[in-house]
Computed example of a mutant assay.
Amino acid sequence: MTAVDAAVRLDTPAPTPELIDVVAGHRRRRSLWARIPRPVRRMVSPVLILAVWAIGSSTELLNPDLFPSPAHVAGTAWRLLNDGQLAVHVGASATRVITGSVLGILIGVLLAVLAGLTRTGEDLLDWTMQILKAVPNFALTPLLIIWMGIGEGPKIVLITMGVAIAIYINTYSGIRGVDQQLVEMAQTLEARRSTLITQVILPGAMPNFLIGLRLGLSSAWLSLIFAEMINTTEGIGYLMSRAQTNLQFDVSLLVIVIYAIAGLLSYSLVLVLERLLLSWRNGFDGFEGRA
């Protein structure tokens, strides 16, 4: 520090404790929006959508015959629930999604580990998975029916493929994106290969795996739409198809709401896993609103 800097510092009056407290208190003061619990804040957008929907229906800005009101759709849901139809269709779809997702996760992780850890695995697997990624699921539907019939097999395979590809692409990228310096440091410490994989590489790829899981679960519900077009009499996809044939717009909107809720639950599951598995990561969490 130069003499000039020292003189400036001596001539500049130090802030009083009162001033420090006032400034700190102002910085800590949060806006009214920031004081609302985050779960409540997250519900604002869905509630606004329902409100606009209800207002549009009540004022007849939306044709009630083509766009039934939320109350009408809720009444349809209650009727189908009492009849037992809704539970049957939702249960059948959930079973398919869970089965296909579990198989897809296992297959996707296994292939990603094989391709990511070894060059031989990469040479044998990566191009094939990239090709499958470019092929739409619905394009395989006729072939799967010919090869496997019209039972549950084609439906599970479509969902499994959608999930496995998303898991593979992101997990493989995560494995190959691990910092090489961390690997070299572990090798310098003479860590075993198994320790290197379980303590360095796989934890480093975990964020990408969770991204793949988020995309994979979304793909599972999208694949379900095509899967349940394969000669089925149970499932929310069948419920949607039947509603479109019979011009039951209330049932069609109900199915859309069910898909939305299922997607939200899948997203929430991934968020919980991120908090459990990535508790060590101190990432940016966004700015907090202040007054």
Score class of each variant (00 low, 15 high):
residue 291 A to Q: 11
residue 222 L to W: 00
residue 30 R to E: 14
residue 43 M to S: 15
residue 58 S to K: 10
residue 85 Q to H: 06
residue 53 W to R: 07
residue 224 L to F: 01
residue 126 D to Y: 14
residue 140 L to R: 07
residue 199 Q to D: 12
residue 209 F to V: 15
residue 291 A to M: 09
residue 133 K to E: 10
residue 172 Y to P: 01
residue 28 R to P: 02
residue 3 A to E: 15
residue 250 D to H: 06
residue 218 S to T: 13
residue 101 S to Y: 07
residue 238 Y to S: 07
residue 150 I to M: 07
residue 250 D to C: 05
residue 243 A to V: 10
residue 82 N to L: 14
residue 48 L to E: 05
residue 220 A to S: 15
residue 188 T to G: 11
residue 258 I to N: 02
residue 177 G to T: 10
residue 72 H to T: 15
residue 104 G to Y: 05
residue 280 W to D: 14
residue 42 R to L: 15
residue 241 S to D: 13
residue 185 M to Q: 11
residue 248 Q to A: 13
residue 38 R to H: 07
residue 288 E to C: 03
residue 151 G to E: 02
residue 40 V to N: 05
residue 247 L to R: 12
residue 210 L to A: 09
residue 178 V to N: 00
residue 184 E to A: 08
residue 84 G to Q: 06
residue 268 S to Q: 14
residue 257 V to I: 11
residue 3 A to V: 11
residue 207 P to S: 07
residue 9 R to C: 04
residue 178 V to L: 01
residue 10 L to Y: 09
residue 258 I to T: 05
residue 54 A to L: 13
residue 33 W to L: 10
residue 75 G to R: 08
residue 257 V to G: 09
residue 291 A to H: 10
residue 42 R to M: 14
residue 23 V to G: 04
residue 264 L to V: 07
residue 44 V to Y: 01
residue 284 F to W: 15
residue 30 R to I: 09
residue 261 I to E: 06
residue 267 Y to G: 05
residue 277 L to C: 11
residue 28 R to E: 14
residue 24 A to V: 12
residue 33 W to Y: 09
residue 245 T to A: 15
residue 261 I to H: 10
residue 156 I to V: 15
residue 212 G to E: 00
residue 197 I to K: 03
residue 132 L to M: 14
residue 3 A to T: 11
residue 268 S to G: 13
residue 142 P to V: 11
residue 143 L to M: 12
residue 205 A to I: 02
residue 70 P to I: 00
residue 100 G to R: 05
residue 277 L to H: 02
residue 152 E to L: 09
residue 8 V to A: 08
residue 223 S to V: 00
residue 242 R to H: 10
residue 242 R to P: 00
residue 180 Q to Y: 06
residue 226 F to Y: 12
residue 70 P to T: 03
residue 65 D to Q: 13
residue 79 R to F: 10
residue 179 D to S: 10
residue 259 Y to N: 03
residue 102 V to K: 06
residue 149 G to Q: 04
residue 195 T to D: 11
residue 262 A to T: 09
residue 214 R to P: 05
residue 126 D to F: 11
residue 143 L to T: 15
residue 89 H to K: 06
residue 288 E to L: 10
residue 177 G to E: 06
residue 141 T to E: 01
residue 278 L to W: 06
residue 182 L to M: 12
residue 139 A to F: 04
residue 14 A to K: 12
residue 280 W to Y: 09
residue 94 A to G: 03
residue 13 P to D: 03
residue 258 I to S: 01
residue 267 Y to F: 13
residue 288 E to Q: 11
residue 75 G to P: 02
residue 276 L to R: 14
residue 222 L to T: 13
residue 84 G to Y: 07
residue 207 P to C: 00
residue 108 G to E: 03
residue 157 V to E: 03
residue 227 A to H: 04
residue 77 A to P: 03
residue 176 R to G: 04
residue 177 G to K: 07
residue 291 A to C: 08
residue 228 E to D: 04
residue 289 G to F: 09
residue 171 T to W: 00
residue 151 G to D: 08
residue 252 S to K: 08
residue 169 I to W: 01
residue 206 M to K: 01
